[in-house]
């Protein structure tokens, strides 16, 4: 785990403030920004993967049965996946408070 920025002292920084842990932004939760969430109806899903391709967050993956599903840790709720799904298998619903 990367030390959070408000805990880091100047001694914790690498020379030139280089970050040596590739892709550690994946520890950062962007899902908290969401006001809508995608709900997948697997009965309609043909597993084409288009939603996965068009998600700006790259947060849609295949579950054990091969269906595509959003990782809500990252999903910002943009609704692109729902808009682009051919079979209308995805519905956007309001996040509850």
């Amino acid at each position: 785990m990367t030390k959070p920025e408000n805990m880091m002292t100047w001694k914790d920084l690498e020379i030139g403030s280089i970050v040596t842990e590739p892709g550690n932004a994946s520890q950062y939760q962007t899902g908290a920004w969401r006001s809508q969430r995608p709900i997948h109806d697997f009965t309609k899903c043909i597993k084409c993967g288009l939603c996965y391709l068009f998600c700006p967050e790259g947060c849609i993956g295949q579950n054990a049965e091969g269906y595509f599903e959003a990782d809500l840790f990252y999903c910002k709720g943009c609704g692109i996946c729902a808009r682009e799904c051919w079979t209308r298998a995805i519905k956007m619903v309001e996040e509850e408070e």
Binding site: A25, T30, C48, L50, P56
Partner: peptide, 29 residues
Amino acid sequence: YALYVPRLVTKEEIFAPGHRACIGCGEAL
């Protein structure tokens, strides 16, 4: 669109999630 997109595209996210682009950003995509 080939039916099974994932077969054609690498699953690796070289631009890792957790980036802070606006919701629905086409540039991030």
